[in-house]
């Protein structure tokens, strides 16, 4: 019992550690950039998938379904292989950098954004979809109109994507390396601290992650409730 009580006491003490603040900032930046970039690509693709009749739609759908359940460590491994100095993209020198972490989280977030965007569009009433066709808009305008119609769902997709990547550890540890002050984020910090039985700081980082996660999920349910 003492172990747990001590850890909790230490956890709150560790919250004011400037290093933790640095880690929190990097966490938010990395996952935020990953979520934003996955939105930039994923929302249009998701809209096309949700509305579309185009070649390769079935394949894309399967790819998205598989991607949504992709194990983060596998994404990390694949990316590490690509970025490894003697690998195909080695000349970019991106291994163990925040950029590599953003890339990994982008890959994890993208299928979620595409899949959720497509499904909120598909959940539009049949009358809306039929009317959308009847308006004879060009592809871009049609997607835009559909997306505006389901915007809470699109924001929800963004938040869900952020929520997934911010709490993910496998991929960022593999491609980021948990380097202090450079690629150390909350999840990799928790792994590190708990490996060393420094349960207080581990729990402190965990509390911050939990708060972020709570904010994400509360706003997600608020947004989904909005209309």
């Amino acid at each position: 019992m003492d172990l747990i009580l001590d850890a909790i006491a230490d956890a709150f003490a560790s919250l004011s550690d400037p290093e933790l603040i640095e880690v929190v900032a990097l966490t938010l930046v990395v996952s935020g950039l990953a979520a934003i970039s996955s939105l930039a690509l994923g929302v249009p693709v998701g809209a096309a998938l949700g509305l579309g009749r185009f070649r390769g739609r079935g394949t894309l759908r399967v790819a998205v379904d598989v991607g949504m359940g992709l194990p983060p460590v596998l994404v990390g491994l694949a990316l590490l292989l690509l970025l490894w100095r003697s690998g195909p993209l080695g000349s970019l020198r991106l291994t163990f950098t925040p950029t590599a972490m953003v890339m990994a989280q982008f890959l994890l977030a993208l299928p979620i954004v595409v899949g959720l965007t497509a499904s909120v569009i598909e959940s539009l009433p049949a009358a809306a979809l039929e009317q959308l066709e009847a308006l004879k808009l060009n592809r871009v305008d049609r997607s835009r109109l559909a997306l505006v119609e389901v915007w809470p769902g699109v924001v929800g997709a963004a938040v869900a994507a952020f929520g997934r990547v911010v709490s993910e550890v496998g991929a960022v540890l593999i491609v980021g390396g948990n380097i202090s002050g450079e690629t150390r984020v909350l999840t990799t910090l928790i792994v590190q601290e708990s490996r060393q039985a420094r349960f207080g700081p581990a729990l402190g980082a965990g509390i911050v992650l939990l708060v972020i996660s709570l904010i994400v999920n509360v706003s997600l349910s608020r947004i989904r409730g909005a209309r």
Partner: peptide, 10 residues
């Protein structure tokens, strides 16, 4: 074409 159920967008 005007479908049976008129739908207005946001």
């Amino acid at each position: 074409y005007q479908p049976q159920q008129p739908y207005l967008f946001r």
